[in-house]
Design a protein around this nucleic acid. Structure first.
Lengths: 242, 242
DNA sequence: CGCGCTGTTGACTCACATCAAAACCCGTGG
DNA sequence: CCACGGGTTTTGATGTGAGTCAACAGCGCG
């Protein structure tokens, strides 16, 4: 049934720091359950006030805001290991929405317990701060791509990042991983139009740099992709989670 | 001489949450000194590895990244109360640079002590997480403006945010506050060209929505400005600091 | 078998970039 | 006191990357 933190499969992944068994047990006590959502379902909605925190255990999703004029900005893609709802909790009510793209299962934590958890486990609290900082850092990079990279560079960058994340999570086999988003999602992440995104993807495919078709991402030469992305291809730093 | 945390002038500001005296004393012990920098001086540099954390006490600055092609993206404007260096510490080495625009004074904390500080003062640790989350949240909004707002909307948005922050810090008098950045800085924050930024500023000035000349920002009707910024004008939520 | 969603493709338009030059605004030094 | 130079702002002319509009193709599903 519900996964026990001691056996959390994510800890095996190369992306995350090692967490001692004792601490996992403590985390387990903080965990209030598990949530499974269907594709297309909202996990958190703008304007609502949910008393929960989540970490993604399985599946993929999106975090986004909607402007008053109806435009959507996706803030990031959510993959296993991502912590959701912190920014939310901090402002009185949510400004961002999170929705599941594939079926997802999420570990649920009770926000009311959050502070206690922190007090009783400062080192896990430290980890959470760390996580928030990593996230913030990444958003800075995203900002740079939306603001300063061309469409080609930006798409290359985004796909490279997703690919790297996939590698770290062992989602990649033979240079391929499942990437179940729509082109519209990528467009909304990069501030581009759907049409232009589509055409740019086609060009990158022709140049043999990346292909992303039928929900599978294929990168044959990450170094080369990184070059057009104005980025570096190097292993992601380990990070904590849960 | 060096400000004592117990007397920290920032605590008087409407922007920040109340912190009990006892906790300020603890913070004081974590504080390792004060740094004063001249305008134009780097506080943190990309690629370096500084053992310090800062919080801005006085003055204004910029945080930015530089892409391999030389383009600059400013990630945020730094005002009193901002915590600097967390994202930095988390990745092995800095990816972002921080530089002082005006003369600044910064409280300096020793990163080596950071974890201990956390362990001994979980509630302050909690505050720091909170802060990181607020920051992350704000970056999400910034992303939305760079990605989805037009030049006019974006500039209106940025100036409104700065104005609001200024209000909360009591930097505004008679609808005016000092804003010592260059147009180039704003352009680099919004992913616009200098020329276009300049022309758009001129238009907003003609429309009587905002004027920003000679380093002073003037907003006569924030509501109206918010309307063109596709944003809401409402008091900033209180947040912790230090 | 027709409807709704996603992906493709082509023609046309526009917001914003780029290029270039001038105007200002100092501080410095002759 | 004025000439000079570097940084910033302003203005005009011109170019282009990306947006918009429109139509169609493929596909899963009731």
């Amino acid at each position: 049934m519900a996964t026990h933190c001691e056996n959390c499969p994510l800890h095996k992944s190369a992306l995350f720091t090692e967490v001692p068994l004792a601490e996992r047990r403590v985390t387990q006590k903080f965990k209030s359950g598990e949530l499974m959502v269907d594709p297309g379902t909202p996990v958190l909605s703008e304007g609502s006030n949910t008393p929960q925190l989540f970490t993604a255990l399985r599946g993929m999703g999106l975090r986004y805001t909607t402007l008053p004029n109806g435009e959507r900005q996706v803030i990031n893609f959510i993959l296993p290991g991502d912590f959701i709802g912190l920014q939310a909790g901090v402002m009185g009510e949510m400004q961002h929405s999170v929705e599941a793209t594939t079926a997802m299962t999420l570990c649920v934590f009770d926000r009311a317990e959050f502070f206690n958890f922190f007090k009783n486990n400062p080192s896990r609290g430290f980890d959470i701060t760390w996580l928030a900082a990593v996230e913030e850092h990444f958003l800075g990079d995203t900002l740079a791509t939306v603001g300063r990279r061309t469409a080609t560079e930006g798409i290359a960058w985004a796909l490279l990042k997703l690919y790297q994340r996939g590698e770290a999570l062992s989602l990649v086999r033979e240079q391929r991983m499942s990437l179940p988003f729509r082109q519209q999602d990528l467009a909304d992440a990069l501030g581009l139009s759907l049409v232009h995104t589509n055409k740019t993807l086609a060009k990158l495919r022709e140049r043999q740099l990346v292909s992303w078709m039928d929900g599978v991402l294929h990168v044959s030469d990450p170094e080369q992709l990184a070059a057009v992305a104005l980025a570096e291809y190097k292993p992601l730093p380990k990070r904590p989670f849960l």
